[in-house]
Amino acid sequence: MKLAVFASGSGSNFQAIAEAIQKGQLEAEIGLLFCDKKTAYVLQRAAALQIPAVTFSPKDFPSKVQYEQEILRLLEENEIELVVLAGYMRIIGATLLARFANRMINIHPSLLPAFPGIHGIQDAFEAGVAETGVTIHYVDAGVDTGPIIAQEKINITTEDTLATLTEKIHTIEHRLYPTVLQKLITTQKERAIDDEKKSLN
């Protein structure tokens, strides 16, 4: 399956997905990295991995619709089948959602619906909850509100600092994201085979 990864920052989840593909753990190809920040470190990761990358900002366009239309053009041009958000810090608009409904996945560093938004780890830590975790979900028009695909919990201990908790969350993310993506791809392949068998009967 051909993926596009959207990222805005350092790109550690992008790296984890790419490495899982290289190891044969994820039956996919990253056809495109899209980044909305021209100085983000993820672009250096893509260059090192020789993965095509495109970067531009909403500020480069008169409207969000036109920004997303250009992204959509890139996705279609590269024959992208699944969009994977990996630290992409923008809300997806109707232009992309309409074309990629149920084909756009996000990872979030909390046990949704608790602690949505861009500070999920910090918010959970400062709230003093006993556990948090990682959620993988489909993207919808809300902020981290789409249907949940998978979650993994982690306890927050009295020894944890924000830094240690962040490291633990990232460790889970880097393992869980490629695993869940592979399950989704396998399921889709099985459905395609079943559909083909039905059409022959």
Rank of each mutant, 00 (worst) to 15 (best):
D144V: 01
T132A: 01
L3W: 04
Q69L: 11
D60R: 12
Q122V: 15
T145F: 02
G146W: 00
Y138P: 01
A114C: 12
K197Q: 11
A46Y: 03
D123V: 08
K183T: 07
E159N: 13
I136H: 00
I193F: 10
H170D: 15
E70P: 10
K38Q: 14
H137E: 00
I156G: 01
L32W: 03
Y88M: 07
K64C: 11
Q151P: 04
A40L: 01
D60F: 10
L3F: 12
A53Q: 11
A53T: 11
K2G: 08
T186S: 15
T164W: 07
H108N: 00
D194K: 14
T166F: 08
A47V: 09
L72V: 05
A114W: 09
I118L: 12
N155A: 13
L200R: 12
A163N: 13
Y177W: 03
L74T: 09
R45I: 05
G24F: 07
I91F: 09
Q44Y: 10
I169C: 03
T55D: 13
S57C: 09
L96G: 11
N106M: 02
I91H: 09
Y67L: 04
G11S: 07
H108E: 00
L200Q: 13
V65P: 08
A40Q: 02
A124T: 06
A48Y: 08
